[in-house]
């Protein structure tokens, strides 16, 4: 009986959290048009979430592409079709690995930074001070960071895929001896616009989810060192799970 009660309690708590998150995201979206009127704030956040994540994204993209090149070459050699390596690497990156790995890296780097920054602002009364100055912190602090993340994610995913394709080419063509002409022409022939669109849609959705989760957790963090730490951890965990669940759902819809 107590187990049932406990489960019911957890379910109710989960529903409440989901409700709070939905309301907060709706509020974020409602203040977004006004936040767009302050482009300087958006550029600053685009720099923080996007430009400052570039190194980790490019480095990871390069190595993921190189691994794809190695694994792909080994697999395709068994079927005697190593010339298809270019298309395999490109499709894998554009449709799946680019958006997903970028989102996971984004949650770990930019998402945690967003949560801890907003959480610390709350812990040091900066958000309360804004409210007392008749400035809505959701509009002034959360919305620019949210928009910055949403815009940055597809751009980062594109850069990830680009460096990944370069990594695949580096291994496949330079190290394994696949013909460069075949590598690129197969890729060009196999990749369609809808493959790129799928990647863009996925990374856009992941950007929305990761940014909203990071901002929500920061804004609702318990204003103590421990509370901010826990909120930061939750951001990574929830964002990662959300990305993988969303990825499956979007793949099922878009295929």
């Amino acid at each position: 009986m107590s187990l049932v009660a406990e489960l019911a309690g957890s379910g109710r708590e989960l529903a409440q959290k989901w409700g709070r998150f939905t309301l907060f995201t709706a509020r974020l979206c409602a203040v977004t048009p006004r936040a767009l009127l302050r482009p300087s704030l958006l550029v600053e956040q685009l720099h923080n979430s996007g430009a400052q994540s570039l190194v980790i994204i490019m480095l990871s993209g390069l190595f993921v592409g190189m691994v794809l090149g190695l694994q792909g070459f080994d697999l395709l050699r068994r079927f005697g079709s190593t010339e298809s390596l270019g298309s395999a690497v490109a499709l894998g990156l554009l449709r799946e690995l680019g958006p997903v790995v970028t989102a996971l890296l984004f949650a770990g780097r930019a998402g945690t930074a967003l949560t801890s920054e907003i959480g610390l602002m709350s812990a040091t009364d900066q958000l309360s001070a804004m409210e007392m100055m008749a400035v809505d912190p959701v509009r002034r602090v959360c919305a620019p960071r949210f928009i910055g993340g949403v815009v940055a994610m597809p751009l980062l995913a594109a850069i990830f895929s680009m460096t990944g394709i370069f990594g695949g080419q580096l291994v496949g063509v330079t190290l394994m001896g696949v013909d460069a002409g075949q590598f690129w022409s197969q890729m060009r022939g196999a990749v369609e616009l809808r493959d790129i669109t799928e990647g863009v849609i996925k990374s856009g959705a992941f950007g929305l989810a990761c940014s909203a989760i990071a901002v929500y957790e920061g804004y609702h963090a318990v204003p103590t060192a421990d509370g901010v730490g826990r909120a930061t951890t939750r951001t990574v965990v929830i964002s990662s799970v959300a990305v993988l669940v969303l990825d499956y759902m979007l793949t099922a819809v878009l295929l």
Binding site: M121, T124, D125, Q126, S128, A129, M130, M132
Partner: peptide
């Protein structure tokens, strides 16, 4: 209204 918080609450 203006409010002065205990720690100043300056935007860091």
């Amino acid at each position: 209204m203006g409010m002065l918080f205990q720690n100043g609450a300056l935007l860091t």
